[in-house]
Every structure is written in structure tokens, then in C-alpha cells.
Design a binder for these strands. Structure first.
Lengths: 233, 233
DNA sequence: TCTTTCCGTGAACTGTTGTTCAGTTCTTTG
DNA sequence: CAAAGAACTGAACAACAGTTCACGGAAAGA
């Protein structure tokens, strides 16, 4: 007698798995990675704690998948924004602005994914997330450099530094505390974007209109991937 | 009968306290904050675990003091380097270079002090450390701006971004892995310093000789306190 | 309907570390 | 040298969260 999973069951299992991941994501968005604990996540997903282990070998794996998901979305959004830009310089600007906006819009989540202390070992997925995002930035810097818009430079270090600057200034513990005010938020994003572009050698970014197209996901609907079902913390 | 602590005893107590702190520092320098555990630290300081609690109310307090010490030294070094510079711009460059050098020279420690996950709550001392360092950078940016060497800008965000860029590019998980090579290390410091200065609007930093005075401390290449008895773990 | 196989449950288990405290050793004082 | 106070010890304790597993129940096949 061979037991075979029917379609219905397969879908239920997939849905359950997704709901656990979603619960973890919501927990992280609300309370950071510290809130991603098996029992609360299971509770939020309306399953028992043990059930989580039928879908994820360990908490580390659960968080790893969460991190991978978030970073994948982040990279896709950056790529889309950059690809829509007319030239290499504005593509770079668009990518940087995009990630800045995303990161401030989901501060807790971004902090949790990239930097927040976690009890289990998530260095590897975090490293991959950082690398994926940095690689995307690096590619845009490279392109602008090849086009002669930027001075020759070590693009790997430049991309890393840009990521660090965005992160520290916008989501780190020293980030301005009043970023809930949309205007302050937009100003902060513009300021940091300008800094980042200047860092890699973009001259007159502001004058050339590279920094102005800051469209908040909540406000003007132009932002792609705005459908991320984020609870605004 | 009144028991009074003799000079000898007082000094022994102070020495012991200092040695515990030093043991914590060494542990952090070698294995990051994760290695700062009561039992190993006590062992390294040649005392029993319980003794640590005669000097520090909790592990959090021990780490807080360690963080404060390190950041105090960091700020002092920055200030000294900057004060020795001839003008506001080179003072800024000197401060940035100084912290970059310090931070790469003691990567594990810097990572532990500023960002590494710790089980106990050290957000407050970390926040103070970050703020102290950022404040020093901010003051130098401010001075250069007042002197008309930099465009007008939000110096608080700029300082934070600079700190983040340095940190991410030099000690974060994406930092180049070959920084043990002194030449690579010097290049990385110069590259990041140049990025940071450009970010705040310094033009031609390289041409103006603001980035070149990178002098590595003697201890940069060698691991600190290489001869340490393994203490289990 | 009955049997087999798998899914879900949640209370119990585990392993790790910070923390405590009664007993021991050392220092001071009369 | 003896009494008293302080410091030190290290094994035992506590707390917390991740993980396990024996059991109940639902779904699949005959």
C-alpha cells in the first residue's frame, strides 16, 4: 500500500509552510529578529510549536529562508528600479534610492535581516543577503564607471561602503528617531542618497536631478514591489 | 574592630578589576563578544567565576565598561590625530583615517564593540559608543563646513553615514578577507577614506594630499596576545 | 470500513550560561 | 596569636528557548 499525497494535501502543506514563513516575517517586522521565536511564530501561524519543525529543520533554517526571501525581494526591486532608468548614472541613483526607501520603510525588518543580534547562527544567509545587495550596487557602480561617469575605483569596496552608509544612517541605532514623519523620512533618504552618490564620485547629483525622484511606497504609487504586505510596525 | 583596606589590598583589588577587564578585552579581540563569557574570562584572569561578580554586577556591566573603554580610546585617538592637522579639512581627513586604521587593526574588537550579536543587553553602551564616535566625526565635518570647505549639509546624518561606510567596508562581514596583508590593508583604508571624504563633499582629496598619511600602528599585522592558553569552550 | 501512513500536537526534555551563596582562605586588628 | 571582617571559590541553581517524541487524528488505499 503506497500512501500518496493528494493535490489538496500538497497545497495545504505548502500553504502552511508559507504561513509559517509569513508569521516569521511579520514577527520580524514588528519586533525584530528577537521576536522570531518558535513558540510565538507557531502561535501566530496557528500551529503548534512542533509543527514548525515539520517544515524547517531548525530555527536557523527558518530565519535563513526569511532572510533569503527578503533580500531576494530587495535585489529585485533595486534591479527593476535601475533598469527603468535612462542611463548608468541614473540607474545607480535609482538603485540606491530604491534600497534606501525600502530600508527605511521596513526598518525593523531590514535591521533584523542584516544586522540585529540573533541567538542562532545566521551569518551565512546574512552574508549572502549582504553580498547579493552589494553586488547589485556594485554592478551599477561598475556600469557608471565604464561609461566614464565615475572615477576609476575599487567598486567592491565602494558598494560595501555605500550599503553600510545607507544602513547605518537610516536603520541603525543612530538613525534619526523621527523618521515616521514622511517629510523627514524623504529628506533623510535624499540626504543619504546624495552622500552615497558623492562618495562614488558623482558630481552635482542634485543639480543633475539624480536624487529627486524619491517616491515613497505609501504615497505616490510609482514604487514597484509596494505590495509587500508590510505592517507598518 | 574596624577593618580597613590597606594600600596593598586596595591596589590588588584595582589590579584584579583591571585584569578582569583586560581579560574581557583580550577575549573580545580574539573571538569577538561571543568569547566574552564569564567562566572563560574569569579563567583568563586567573580568578573564579564568582569573583567576577565582586567587581561587576553583571555580565552586561562588564561588557558595558569594556565598550566604554574602547570607544573612549577611539575618540581620543581621533581627536588627537585631528587636532594635529593644519586645517579643518585635513583634520577631518585625519580623524577619518585614524578611525579607519584603528578599526581595521582591531577588527574583531571593533566588530564586537559596535555590532556583534551579544546575548545580554548592551544597546545602551553601544549607542553611546556609536554616538561618541559619530559626534567626533560630526564636529570635524561641521568645522570644515563652517570653513567653507564643504557644501552645506546635515552633518549628523553625514557623520553617521561615514561611520557606517567605514564600518561595513572594513570590519563587516563583507570586508575584504585579505586585510592581513599590510599593503591591501593600507589600500583599503585609503580607498574607504577617500570615499568618506568624497561623500561629505571634499573635492580632490587625493590630489590635495589629504588621504595619503596612512601610518599603520606597529601592532597592526600581528595578532594581539598571541600566546594564550586555550580555555576550553 | 479497515489498515497503513503521515501530519499535527504540546508537554517534557535539553543544553547552555549567567548568577548565587555557603564554605574556605586570606588580611587586618587587638 | 586569636578574633573578626573581607575576599575568593566553584559547585549548584535558575531561566529561558530550541528541540524532541509518543500519542491522537486525519487522509489514502484496499
Amino acid at each position: 500500500m503506497v500512501y500518496r499525497r493528494t493535490h489538496q494535501v500538497v497545497r495545504r502543506l505548502e500553504a502552511r509552510r508559507a504561513s509559517i514563513l509569513q508569521a516569521a516575517r511579520e514577527a520580524a517586522a514588528e519586533g525584530g529578529m528577537a521576536a522570531v521565536q518558535i513558540a510565538p511564530v507557531a502561535n501566530r501561524a496557528s500551529v503548534a510549536a512542533g509543527t514548525v519543525y515539520r517544515y524547517f529543520p531548525s530555527k536557523a533554517d527558518l530565519i535563513a529562508e526569511l532572510i533569503a526571501d527578503v533580500s531576494r525581494a530587495e535585489v529585485a526591486a533595486m534591479r527593476e528600479a535601475a533598469d527603468a532608468a535612462p542611463g548608468p548614472s541614473s540607474a545607480l541613483a535609482a538603485a540606491v534610492t530604491q534600497i534606501a526607501v525600502h530600508v527605511v520603510s521596513h526598518r525593523k525588518l531590514a535591521w533584523g535581516v542584516l544586522a540585529e543580534p540573533v541567538d542562532v547562527d545566521v551569518t551565512e544567509p546574512r552574508l549572502m543577503a549582504r553580498r547579493d545587495i552589494a553586488d547589485e550596487i556594485q554592478a551599477r557602480i561598475e556600469a557608471a564607471m565604464q561609461a566614464g561617469h565615475l572615477p576609476s575605483q575599487d567598486t567592491a569596496i565602494a558598494a560595501t561602503a555605500v550599503l553600510g552608509a545607507l544602513h547605518e544612517a537610516l536603520v541603525g541605532p543612530l538613525a534619526p528617531p523621527d523618521l515616521d514623519d514622511p517629510i523627514k523620512l524623504r529628506d533623510a533618504v535624499q540626504t543619504v542618497t546624495l552622500l552615497a552618490l558623492r562618495a562614488v564620485g558623482v558630481l552635482d547629483a542634485r543639480a543633475r536631478g539624480l536624487v529627486v525622484q524619491v517616491t515613497m511606497p505609501a504615497a505616490a504609487a510609482a514604487a514597484p514591489t509596494a505590495s509587500e504586505a508590510m505592517t507598518g510596525s
